[in-house]
Simulated assay, not measured.
Amino acid sequence: MQVTGTEDVEAPIEHVFAELTAFEALERQALRRGIDVRRKFRGSVPNIGEGWEAQFRFRGKERTAKIELEELEAPHLVQFAGASGGLETNTHIELVPLSPKRTRVNFVFKMAPKTLSARLLVQSFKLARSTINKRFQKRMSQFARDIENKLAKSA
């Protein structure tokens, strides 16, 4: 299954990329949502192949996910790979400058089930595809507005 989204942000590409790779802030957001995040790298930015381990509760079960940075090409591309149980994920975020002060964010999230239970999970996601897409688009819009607000405050 694949979830995609596109959002235009009124900010320069360098600023959007900096916000997108502010991993400490993203880790704090995850912690506020009840996700226990542990770094598997030293420093503020992971190297290719390094990442995080996360523990969270989903559908009544305690789950563990491993997320690794696959590609980082400043200021245009960030790509992650993840695995949780029998579910493998790939997140591809591409930034395209539309003008010096406007950036388009293209986001692609893919899920590939490797076990029967993961296939059942993905099938339930497919049945709720429209709800998931609406929530995802709302989150992307909010993320874009947050970036724009931070830029306005710093100016």
Rank of each mutant, 00 (worst) to 15 (best):
T89Q: 02
F109N: 08
P75R: 04
K110V: 11
P100T: 11
V3R: 04
E70D: 12
T6G: 11
A144P: 00
S124E: 08
H92K: 14
V96Y: 02
E94M: 12
N47C: 07
N106W: 09
G82L: 01
R129I: 00
K114Y: 04
G60M: 14
A30W: 10
D8V: 15
E19L: 08
K40S: 15
S154V: 13
V3S: 05
R59T: 11
K101A: 09
L72Q: 11
R102L: 04
T21F: 02
N47M: 10
G51C: 06
V9W: 04
V45F: 09
K138Y: 00
V9M: 02
T64R: 13
I13P: 01
F80L: 15
A74N: 14
A54Y: 09
P46M: 07
G82P: 07
F17I: 02
S99W: 06
R119G: 05
N133Y: 03
P100S: 07
L26W: 08
A112E: 08
Q137L: 05
K134M: 05
R119S: 10
A22K: 08
E88G: 06
T6S: 14
F109G: 08
R42F: 12
E68W: 00
V16P: 08
A18K: 01
E10L: 09
D36W: 07
K61L: 14
F58K: 15
K134R: 13
E50C: 06
E50M: 06
P46Y: 08
E71V: 04
G82C: 02
G43I: 04
G5F: 09
L121E: 01
L151F: 13
